[in-house]
Design a protein around this nucleic acid. Structure first.
Lengths: 215, 215
DNA sequence: GTCTATATATAGATAGAC
DNA sequence: GTCTATCTATATATAGAC
């Protein structure tokens, strides 16, 4: 965006904006394919050639889009860690009681885990293979998310809607419970996503946090 | 054990039983060191030389004790997956109400996760690197454990002690919540282990499952 | 049971043509 | 932007002496 200064000349092989869009699509295509393969086989069991095969190009061509394999992993982890911070946390700022805001977050969180299931699996299991600075950045996002969730628990305790032995403990527990579904949920299982969503809202907000509603 | 048939001759350099015991100690020493390093750096970021260094021998010497690096990982995963099945599940067969048995399991589970924290981290994150047949065996143990936990939830629902929307969902949720502590608990944190244990028993048995005790 | 020395395979990354 | 060809580093694993 910031580098699109000059207007494109008429006879160029492709207008910069269009070319940029296509390049970006290619990048996202690579990230999506890599996430899928990383999630099932594990980062280190996957070669650049495997990723390239999935996109239909040769291994060396990947280096036109990413400087290293680790940068691909970073792109996978970053997207899936950022998005919940940008999307789900908005729901905590919206009007409503702590019960309502927490229920909205649980729903959004589970749906995001489902929508980007493979990316989340990578983000949960392969953080060790990130470069230290990348790892630190990802960890920062996660800690912030966690803190915001804990704050809602605290808010609910203050209003008397929630009754928990310890807000930090409850926040850790409910987040682990949410994130855990990446490891066992399958679309062809006995429970559909929306059943899990409704069940977890009840288990977490209604029971664990002790809210009597409405939410 | 089954191969210790003949009685040892007097002048042997070491009595077979003693030698076996020492060899076994060495194996366990290697497994323990490997678990520690795998947990912090990730299986594939660790070389045989790193493991050997931690034990004070050369990389090649490890192959006297294990036929491959994967077998070391398998030993780590197996020990930590078997033990809960052999120890914790006994508590589910003991006399007592479902509430009491579930509370006992939660306590034992959390204490085991703590006692063998690094091994659990490996068992949770590195399953992708196991040979298929080893992976299948580990998965089998985990599925059985999960089923037994679910059965207690079902039993509690039947007695009327527990009230949950879906027993499977509750079992998945509580197990994910329990296992999650491996990722965030530290001995030098603000909460001690027994505080977490007591808090989680309350959150899970008392609130999530809705038992009014005693447990 | 541990050592030194080394075989061997693989995979991340680069060079340069098209 | 993708290709072919190749470099190079690393690490698992083996051979055989002590």
């Amino acid at each position: 965006m910031s580098s699109a200064g000059a207007a494109p000349a008429a006879g160029e092989p492709a207008r910069p904006a269009a070319r940029e869009a296509r390049t970006r699509l290619r990048r996202e295509e690579i990230v999506a394919a890599a996430a899928r393969i990383f999630a099932t086989a594990g980062y280190h069991n996957v070669g650049m050639r495997d990723i390239a095969d999935a996109v239909g190009i040769r291994g060396a061509s990947l280096y036109h889009h990413f400087p290293s394999k680790e940068e691909i992993l970073y792109a996978v982890c970053l997207s899936v860690t950022r998005e919940p911070n940008e999307e789900n946390l908005l729901l905590l700022d919206a009007p409503g009681t702590p019960s309502q805001r927490m229920a909205a977050l649980v729903r959004a969180h589970l749906r995001h885990l489902h929508r980007r299931r493979v990316e989340h699996l990578v983000g949960l299991h392969e953080l060790n293979s990130l470069a230290p600075e990348h790892r630190a950045e990802i960890d920062g996002y996660r800690r912030y998310y966690q803190r915001r969730v804990r704050d809602v628990v605290v808010a609910g305790v203050r209003t008397g809607e929630f009754r928990v032995p310890d807000a930090r403990l409850a926040a850790f527990g409910l987040l682990d419970m949410l994130n855990g579904i990446s490891n066992w949920f399958h679309d062809d299982g006995v429970l559909g996503l929306e059943q899990v969503v409704d069940g977890y809202v009840e288990l977490i907000v209604g029971r664990m946090l002790g809210s009597s509603g409405p939410y």
